Simulated scan of single mutants.
Amino acid sequence: MAKIVIAFASMSGNTEEIADLLKVSIEPFEHEIDLAEIEHMDVNDLLQYDGILIGSYTWGDGDLPYETEDFYEDLLSIDLTGKKAAVFGSGDHAYPKFCAVVDLFEERLKECNAELIQEGLKVELTPDTQEEIDECVDFAVNFASQIGE
């Protein structure tokens, strides 16, 4: 059994909804799962997990949300070698840089030597169509199945 953290930042509730859906989808794998808001986390907390899922909305024109800035910067202070990770987020196609924060966190996790085991999940606002829900479930199941390896 692996230990997984789903760390997220959500303003309108969209990213939190994705995080909840991921958690429910991973539960059948019997991994230990912690759901945490990024602004209440210390990056060193990540070291106790085998799997790391980071989720955030994108603010404005591709910017990090205020509540993730310190966490994002502090990531450079830790080595995540041996940790499996993936990133998810919500965005709005009305903005030119759709879900840009997913890409920012993927790059930062690579800089910390984390192993990105799948492509980031980018959701328009909230997963409300069956297709979007299935995409989230598939993302979670794929992640959970690779964590046990």
Rank of each mutant, 00 (worst) to 15 (best):
K3V: 00
I4A: 00
A7T: 03
A7S: 09
S10T: 13
M11Y: 12
S12D: 11
S12N: 13
N14S: 14
T15I: 07
E17N: 15
I18S: 02
I18Y: 04
A19F: 12
A19P: 12
D20G: 14
D20N: 15
K23M: 14
V24A: 10
S25H: 10
S25F: 11
E27T: 15
P28H: 08
E30V: 10
E30D: 13
E30N: 15
H31R: 10
E32V: 10
E32W: 08
E32T: 12
D34Q: 09
D34L: 08
E37P: 04
E37I: 09
E37V: 10
I38H: 02
E39D: 14
E39I: 09
H40W: 12
H40E: 15
M41H: 12
D42M: 11
D42F: 10
V43K: 00
V43T: 06
D45V: 03
L46P: 02
Q48E: 15
G51R: 08
I52M: 00
I52Y: 01
L53I: 14
G55Y: 09
G55W: 08
G55I: 03
G55Q: 07
S56F: 08
W59M: 01
D61N: 14
D61F: 10
G62D: 07
D63H: 11
L64F: 09
P65K: 07
Y66T: 04
Y66D: 13
D70H: 07
Y72G: 02
Y72V: 01
L75A: 02
L75P: 01
I78N: 02
D79Q: 04
L80N: 03
L80D: 08
L80E: 06
K84Q: 08
A85N: 03
F88M: 03
F88G: 04
G91E: 07
G91Y: 10
G91I: 05
G91Q: 09
D92C: 11
D92T: 08
H93D: 02
A94M: 10
A94V: 02
A94Q: 12
Y95K: 07
P96R: 07
P96L: 04
K97R: 06
F98R: 04
F98W: 07
C99G: 05
C99S: 09
A100P: 07
A100M: 10
D103K: 11
L104M: 12
E106R: 07
E106T: 02
L109E: 11
K110V: 04
E111Q: 12
N113K: 15
N113S: 12
N113Q: 12
E115Q: 14
L116N: 03
L116R: 05
L116G: 03
L116V: 01
E119S: 09
L121I: 04
K122S: 04
K122R: 14
V123N: 01
V123E: 03
E124W: 01
L125P: 01
L125R: 11
P127D: 04
Q130G: 04
Q130W: 02
E132T: 03
I133G: 00
D134S: 13
E135D: 13
E135Q: 15
E135I: 05
C136R: 09
F139Y: 13
V141K: 12
N142Q: 14
N142C: 12
N142W: 10
N142R: 13
F143M: 08
A144W: 09
A144Q: 08
S145F: 10
Q146M: 12
Q146A: 06
Q146K: 14
I147Q: 09
I147N: 06
G148M: 13
G148R: 13
